[in-house]
Design a protein around this nucleic acid. Structure first.
Lengths: 188, 188
DNA sequence: AGATATGTGTTGTATAAGCAACGAATCAAC
DNA sequence: GTTGATTCGTTGCTTATACAACACATATCT
């Protein structure tokens, strides 16, 4: 934790691993991806994987976090607030991410993946809300972040049920009012 | 030298450096490229550069060697023989390489670059000839490799004189007979 | 059941890569 | 010519990665 976050070797290796993971998950489903697959694809030693990640779920969590933050225009996400645009891009990000992860159905794993996705959403929403309302009390922001994350995730699940029938953008647009309304009510 | 030739870290770093060098030489001319530029572009430490290469000329030499071998279809170049096809691909490789290196004129450096290119050609020709004629005496092969390398390099210089007036392929085709004739005479 | 194989985490050790600092060389500007 | 700023090539030390080996788990096959 000293300055390992800026060490070029760390950045390179993490990127290699995450990219390989994303690439692999476009070819096969999550439950069939092994650590060996990832390290072979990334051309790094298996022990090095465990130097950076707890296990494959930890990798999933951090990769997802990475993807979501990138979708929020990278480092200047502090300037972002929770509005229709932000929610849309987040929802779009997780639907495409879920699509690439779960090519087929795989019960039992879905629960874990769902939890990770929702938890990451909650973390991001809390960050955004904290920047947006610095004076607000912590507990209130946490509640709102929880509600938003569950709501958005639920929306993504609902969308994937009638997948292909409607574009993500159109669905998001129709779902936004329900989410925003609660948001505005709380803010007012 | 123990097993550093298969160590993934070595392969990665060398590739990073060489790719950055090639990329930089497409933007600015050789004499303006500093070690700092390369290491910055490759996002590696400057000390690491000197771990792999003597200096920038050593890098040029090894990059060129790499390019030429790749043009000969990589590792199975042992199956290759010195024929029109091989000579064509080699000549094509060094003309494009020279073009990317010397966007502008820079006397004084050209001599060193010329020597490096020709020496690398000689090494490659000698390897090819050794595989092609295993029974032949060493000295004869060395002479032929020298003649071929000087000839090919001369052809590339001649081509660059009336650059743009004729495509490399067409020029090569017209120059091949002069080179092949000497080759066949020696073989017969 | 037992054998074979493959994946998971972990550990000890060798080595490559990062980093900061140094004196020397090159170059620019004044 | 003197100063200041880069770049060069090198060094000592720290840290990340490679590699081999390990015990354990989970399949798959006979």
């Amino acid at each position: 934790m000293t300055r390992s976050k800026t060490d070029p070797r760390v950045l390179r290796t993490r990127k290699l691993i995450m990219d390989s993971f994303i690439q692999l998950s476009e070819k096969k489903e999550f439950k069939d991806i092994t650590i060996k697959d990832i390290t072979t694809e990334a051309m790094i030693n298996r022990a090095t994987f465990y130097y950076h990640f707890e296990d494959i779920y930890d990798l999933l969590e951090k990769s997802l976090s990475e993807v979501l933050l990138i979708k929020l225009d990278g480092d200047d996400y502090q300037a972002k607030i929770v509005d229709e645009e932000t929610i849309t891009s987040l929802l779009l990000a997780i639907t495409t991410f879920q699509q690439s992860l779960s090519n087929r159905c795989h019960r039992g794993y879905e629960d874990t993946i769902a939890r990770i996705i929702r938890e990451q959403l909650e973390v991001i929403f809390y960050k955004l809300l904290s920047n947006q309302h610095p004076s607000q009390e912590k507990q209130g922001l946490e509640v709102m972040a929880a509600i938003l994350s569950w709501g958005i995730y639920g929306a993504s699940v609902e969308w994937s049920r009638n997948s292909e029938k409607i574009t993500p953008e159109a669905f998001i647009h129709s779902a936004i009012p329900y989410i925003i309304s609660g948001l505005n009510g709380k803010q007012a």
